[in-house]
């Protein structure tokens, strides 16, 4: 298997993109799950505020999502730009 300079850089970029997105997806997935779990519990305790609680949950999850989006951006940069 012939390995040249350009090829090895591309290979590293592809593997790096997979690692960036794969590992980067773990945290938001778990974090957003925690938010959702507590929101369901809160609605169970106080169903009258279901609307407010769901809205707050979504805001919290959106913030937690940001690191997943960073990972996606880095993965796409590695794939298409670098």
């Amino acid at each position: 298997m012939a390995i040249e300079g350009v090829d090895i850089v591309k290979a590293a970029a592809f593997l790096g993109a997979g690692l960036a997105m794969g590992l980067g997806a773990i945290g938001p997935g778990v974090g957003e799950g925690m938010v959702g779990a507590k929101a369901c519990e809160a609605i169970g305790r106080n169903p009258k505020e279901a609307g407010l609680l769901t809205r707050t949950m979504l805001v919290g999850q959106a913030v937690s999502e940001s690191t997943g989006i960073y990972s996606l951006v880095i993965a796409l940069l590695l794939l298409f730009v670098v």
């Binding site: 591309k10 590293a12 592809f14 593997l15 790096g16 997979g18 690692l19 938001p28």
Partner: peptide, 23 residues
């Protein structure tokens, strides 16, 4: 025989595999 062609496919598995754990 390019290394990059192989690593793209390993990377695809790594991305989806690790990415599925958290969600």
């Amino acid at each position: 025989t390019a290394l990059s062609a192989s690593m793209a496919l390993v990377g695809a598995g790594v991305s989806m595999g690790f990415g599925g754990i958290g969600p």
